[in-house]
Simulated scan of single mutants.
Amino acid sequence: MDAVSGGTTISDEMAEEAESHDLLTLGIEEEYILVDADEPRGVEAVERVVDLVPDEIRGSVQHEYLRSQIEVASPPQLELSGLFEAMRTLRAEVAGAAERAGTRLLAVGTGPAAGPAIRVLDRPRYHRMREHYGDLSPGQGMCGTHVHVSIPDAETGVLVLNHLRPWLPVLHAATTNSPLFGGHDTGYASWRSMMWERWPTVGPTPYLESLDEYETLVKDLEKTGAMFDEGMLYWYARLSANYPTVEIRMGDVTPTLDDAMLLAALARALVATLLRDVHAGIPAPQVPHPLLMAAHWRAAHDGLEGVAVDLATREPRPAWRLMRQLFDHVRPELDRHGDLEIATVLMGRLRAHGTGAARQRAILAQSGSVADVVDWLAAATKGDTGNSGAAPRQPVTS
């Protein structure tokens, strides 16, 4: 989905404050899976859940492609604390609605347990997608996090997308949260990424010289039938079709808000850093597209717990070293936006407890039960796990 805020627009006061301080606003979209209250399998319950969502957040909650999926979108924010409060409310209220509907809400890249095939939502667009593209969405759904960061104009946004390309694989690794599928470990930290790449317009953003080239390519892709419209441009970073933002969208939905807030803070600081490079006339690195695809594959396979591809040297390096390098690179903009202190804390927590994929595997190794993994995910999604991100009844570290 393209909405940053479910219909909410940035206020005049916020826009004036952002412009006066040369700050960037940000927003998040998160997609979730609904599972049975007693079993870990996905359930077709989204319409029941949406009906039970409180009126005051209804505009920020949307249906998704499958009947076992639901999506929320934050209002745009200047302060990370405001984004956290907005997302905490959305997660808690939607999780509560899910429980009243006899289900549980999971922030997970794809359904961990085996279950029946899930039908698409009864909407003309989705039926058309199912008929045209076939069975490209197996299981209970594929759920991601999309971070929107404001940009001054679309032409500049295209140049920022060029600069973003070599940095996104490390953020991809940091958000891995779908190692399990069909009740077993797939061998990938993000199995969602492997399934998602089957769609014809999914992948790294190509290097583009101008907004005109971007728009021409979008039209050409529509002509091929690879997508119906710009809303189906599923590149890992793109210009929003509806808002003046760059949308970073390669990652799994993260299990905890700690992880989501770290991603948001780093994404904004990275875009702000790269905007300065664009304004200084620094050219974007010319990374070969096949190498970029390989770096994203390695990120999906290893997460942060293994090896990543350093696209500056084209050498494999420990993924956490590259994560640290990204953090240090954007530190001035983290500081300027007021996010450095909290981002440092959140970075430490992620380092201590690992990605969502690592935490799921730790639980599975302890108990051997996918149901226990689902229990933890449900608790983490609601925020019932404390700062550690581990379920209270079963502490986990990695």
Rank of each mutant, 00 (worst) to 15 (best):
D310F: 09
M195Q: 15
L26E: 05
E13K: 10
M293V: 15
A174I: 07
Y32D: 03
A173K: 03
L364A: 13
A362K: 06
R317F: 02
M293K: 11
G82H: 08
V120I: 13
P152V: 07
E39C: 08
R238D: 06
R314N: 12
L322A: 10
P285S: 06
G139F: 11
V271C: 07
A299N: 03
R88N: 14
R324C: 05
R351P: 00
H163G: 07
G368N: 08
L377C: 12
V307A: 07
E305N: 13
A92H: 14
G139Q: 09
L106E: 03
N387H: 13
A379L: 15
A280H: 11
T156Q: 15
A390W: 07
E99I: 01
E56F: 15
V4C: 07
M195Y: 13
H301T: 04
I342D: 09
W196A: 09
Y32G: 04
I33E: 10
V53L: 14
S190R: 04
E17W: 11
E197N: 14
I70W: 01
G338I: 05
L26W: 13
L233V: 02
G183S: 10
M261P: 02
L208K: 06
V278D: 10
T256G: 09
E13Q: 13
M194N: 10
Y188Q: 05
A241E: 12
D135V: 07
E29I: 08
V149Q: 01
M87R: 08
Y214S: 10
V147D: 04
S68G: 14
R104Y: 04
A390N: 07
G383A: 07
A226L: 09
R48Q: 14
D212T: 12
Y126Q: 04
R359K: 15
A272D: 14
G42H: 04
A15Q: 12
V35W: 01
D229G: 09
Y207M: 13
G111Y: 04
H289W: 12
T145F: 01
S398A: 13
W167V: 08
S137A: 15
L291K: 10
A269S: 15
V307H: 01
R336Y: 13
G115S: 11
L208R: 14
R249S: 06
L340E: 09
S68M: 02
S20F: 04
M14N: 06
D339C: 06
H146D: 07
A357L: 05
R198V: 14
L23A: 15
E197D: 14
E93W: 00
R88I: 00
L322Q: 14
E305S: 15
G354H: 01
V61G: 05
D384R: 10
L291C: 01
R128V: 05
M142S: 10
G389M: 05
I28H: 01
D122P: 11
A295K: 09
V147H: 07
F84W: 14
D51E: 15
W297P: 02
G27Y: 01
H301F: 11
R91V: 03
H279P: 01
V287W: 06
S240W: 03
